[in-house]
């Protein structure tokens, strides 16, 4: 079953008098449990695609279905619900809340989704796999980049989203930490069937994925 179905997706930015077609008719299907890598040059529209998929910005035209929900028809409140219920984000710049401990960074993601009670066995497992169970009471600035990114991954999947969107998750990491994080993404994908979409411009990183598609001038190739 396809968890993402995109047909003829367009996203046009207006900057001054010029229209920038960041997405110029994207078609893509992603199966549940797939680990997909998106590669492409800078400015080709990769991040824009993720922002549309994640409900951070509305599409200009086309149809996008995530987990059966039609995105084009959504208003801001609908996109907020999509972000809360169906999508987890991992950014290049970890984007943890700096004033909160690791535990509270994870808790606030649960709080926003209205989830209460103790952590599930599965999530405790995730935390162990990511190797952050000993860092729970630290603030982000007391962690290395690799550790912060592992916390960000845990936060992104704490509410078991349909899709995990990772935009250059290893962009700020050295090779050793990159391999660790990529390995962990793959492990989570295999062990829990978590659907993962990852942007990268590093072919070695893309090799961790099941399938790679290429973005060029707002169009996807190899999809």
């Amino acid at each position: 079953m396809a968890i993402i179905e995109i047909q003829n997706l367009r996203k046009t930015f207006r900057s001054g008098d010029v229209d920038v077609h960041a997405l110029a008719g994207v078609n893509l299907q992603v199966e549940k449990g797939e680990f997909l890598a998106v590669i492409g040059k800078s400015g080709s529209g990769k991040s824009t695609l993720f922002h549309v998929l994640g409900g951070l910005t509305p599409p200009t035209s086309g149809t996008v279905k995530i987990d059966g929900k039609e995105l084009t028809a959504m208003d801001e409140a609908g996109r907020t619900r999509l972000r809360r219920e169906s999508v987890g984000f991992v950014f290049q710049k970890y984007n943890l809340l700096p004033t909160l401990t690791v535990r509270d960074n994870l808790e606030i993601a649960r709080d926003i989704s209205g989830v209460k009670g103790p952590w599930s066995e599965q999530f405790l497992d995730v935390v162990r796999i990511l190797g952050i169970e000993g860092k729970m009471d630290r603030k982000p600035r007391q962690l290395s980049g690799g550790e912060q990114q592992r916390v960000a991954i845990a936060r992104a999947i704490v509410n078991q989203p349909a899709i995990l969107l990772a935009d250059e998750p290893t962009g700020n990491l050295d090779t050793e930490n990159s391999d660790l994080v990529l390995g962990l993404l793959k492990h989570l994908n295999k062990k829990f069937g978590q659907t993962v979409l990852m942007i990268t411009h590093d072919p070695e990183a893309a090799a961790f994925a099941d399938r790679t598609v290429q973005m060029r001038d707002g169009l996807l190739h190899g999809a």
Partner: peptide, 16 residues
Amino acid sequence: TREIGILKALGAGPGY
């Protein structure tokens, strides 16, 4: 602004 953006990306609505 960044923290607010993070909260929104996590699905926080205006009310939150």
